[in-house]
Each structure stands twice: as structure tokens, then as C-alpha cells.
């Protein structure tokens, strides 16, 4: 209880109050409520979060199947979303997903603190980002894909030419990949992966380099005129971004991730969103 904040203390008081009320009322369903709330409070008291009792998550919501928004309800959905919910459950916190934010603003948001506790957004662990924030243990492996219009004969080698334009999502490892490996081509960083796909589809850009699972998902669902021309083996790993100020939360998340790995939760999620265990 050493790092208990005033807000946590107050909520515990409130919980104690409600416990007393329930005890007085002698309601039949009271026992269920009280046990769950008291255990959640105990856990929340151990972990400092932006909103006490809640695990506030943030992501760029245009990265299916990791995160996207349900077309009819606008609710966030995807592998990362479910992962966040499962994590929250393990940490005995309530999961709260904030509205979508630009990908490049996520690391600064986590670093600045006060908005979100964690960002689960298909973010590849790399050292530049590690200087600003902490990453959890990797939760999934990924690779890159070279996406072309169907029938295009371009290759990575032929794209490395001043006349070629290659779209990427700004701030992604795909962008790094293009800048490092295709220095002669014009790298066109766009905000969202949908814009990238559209720009290749319309012929505005010649190719796109983006995370393979995302490319595969989008091509099979909405961009039938594109194809993954080349799978680029990068073996990169996604991690959950946590503020460097909150090592307790990071440790708790790593523990939860290990637990979910062993109890089969991860496998379930993978099957749900990728159709197979990875």
C-alpha cells in the first residue's frame, strides 16, 4: 500500500461503504458484488493507473485484424483489443479503450502519461521506441509484406528506382524497411494503412510495405485487386507500450502475458483472429 494514491484510498473507502450498505440491506445477491469489487480494488490499489480501477488502452484503430472498428457499432475489435480485455481481466481491472489516435502519436502519449496506461497497437519492439517507453515481452511475431496491384511484376529490386513510389504507414517498421532497403525509391508515408492500400489500388503509388497479417486481412476482405507479392521475413515482434514511470504495471503485464501463454488464452485469441495458432 506504499504507493497508494489518494484516489485509490477514496475508492477503497467507497467500496467499504458499499459493503457496509449491502451488509445492512442483507440483499440476496449482495455477496457476489462485494467479493468481486473488493478483489478488484485490492489489485487496483497495487497498480497505479490513469483512472483508478481501469486499464486505459489506446491504439490506432485502422490496423485489422489487430484493431479496427466494427462497421455498424463503431466498437473497437481485433486481436489487440481482445488481448487488452484479457489482460485487464488478469489484472483485475476494468478494460477501457480510448478512441483511435494517429500511430505516430501513441509513443509520446504513453510517455507523457495521464491519458492511457498502455498502447496495444501492433507496435514492433525497436530500440528507438525503447528509449522513450518500455515494451512488454513480445506477444506476437510478425513479418512484412510487399503489396502490389495484381499482375504487377515489380520486385523489391525493381522498386529501388527513382521513378517508383512506395507507400508506407508513417512511423512503422515498414517505413524503416523501405527507407533502408529501397533508398532510391520515393517513400510515401501515409497516416493510415487504408490510405496506403487505396493509393496502391488507384495506382497513385507503385507498392506498399506493411505488416503481413494486416496486408493479408485487408486484401482478403476489401482489396481484391491487390496481392502480397512478397513476404518479407523480418521476424519482428509486437510489444505492449508502457510508460517508463510505471514499472509495476509493466511487471504485472509481463506476468499476465506469461500466464495467458500457458493457460491457452493466447492460443484462443490467435485462432479467433488468424484462424490458426501461430
Amino acid at each position: 500500500m506504499a504507493n497508494m494514491t489518494r484516489r485509490n484510498f477514496l475508492s477503497i473507502c467507497a467500496a467499504a461503504g458499499s459493503l457496509a450498505l449491502v451488509a445492512c440491506g442483507g440483499s440476496g445477491t449482495g455477496s457476489d458484488t462485494t467479493t468481486s469489487s473488493s478483489s478488484a480494488e485490492a489489485s487496483a490499489a497495487a497498480l497505479t493507473t490513469v483512472v483508478a480501477g481501469k486499464l486505459t488502452c489506446i491504439a490506432n484503430m485502422y490496423f485489422p485484424p489487430f484493431e479496427s472498428m466494427d462497421e455498424s457499432t463503431g466498437e473497437p475489435q481485433g486481436f489487440d483489443i481482445d488481448l487488452g480485455k484479457a489482460l485487464a481481466e488478469h489484472l483485475k481491472l476494468e478494460c477501457n479503450w480510448l478512441p483511435s489516435q494517429q500511430f505516430d502519436t501513441l509513443v509520446p502519449t504513453i510517455k507523457a502519461g495521464g491519458t492511457a496506461d498502455i498502447s496495444i497497437t501492433g507496435m514492433t519492439i525497436n530500440d528507438a521506441r525503447k528509449q522513450e517507453i518500455d515494451f512488454s515481452d513480445p506477444y506476437i511475431d510478425s513479418n512484412q509484406a510487399l503489396v502490389l496491384k495484381k499482375g504487377s511484376t515489380e520486385t523489391e529490386a525493381s522498386l529501388n528506382d527513382a521513378s517508383k513510389k512506395v507507400a508506407v504507414q508513417a512511423g512503422t517498421t515498414g517505413e524503416e524497411r523501405v527507407r533502408e532497403n529501397l533508398p532510391n525509391a520515393t517513400c510515401v508515408p501515409l497516416d493510415e494503412v487504408i490510405s496506403c492500400m487505396t493509393s496502391v489500388s488507384t495506382g497513385n503509388n507503385d507498392a506498399l510495405v506493411i505488416d503481413l497479417p494486416v496486408a493479408a486481412n485487408l486484401i482478403s476482405n476489401s482489396f481484391g485487386d491487390l496481392e502480397v507479392a512478397q513476404e518479407i521475413a523480418t521476424g519482428e515482434q509486437y510489444g505492449i507500450a508502457v510508460s517508463k514511470e510505471n514499472p509495476e504495471l509493466l511487471a504485472a503485464i509481463n506476468a499476465a502475458l506469461a500466464e495467458m501463454e500457458s493457460d491457452g488464452t493466447m492460443d484462443e485469441l490467435e485462432v479467433k483472429w488468424f484462424g490458426t495458432k501461430l
Binding site: 528507438a128 522513450e132 508513417a170 512511423g171 517505413e175 508515408p189
Partner: peptide
């Protein structure tokens, strides 16, 4: 803004 965005996404700094 594009250059700034790139620089920020590379450095994670505002």
C-alpha cells in the same frame, strides 16, 4: 508536417 511527423514517429519525441 509530414517531415515533423516522420521525425516524431522515429524519435517518439514531440
Amino acid at each position: 508536417m509530414m517531415f515533423a511527423k516522420n521525425a516524431t514517429s522515429v524519435s517518439g519525441n514531440i
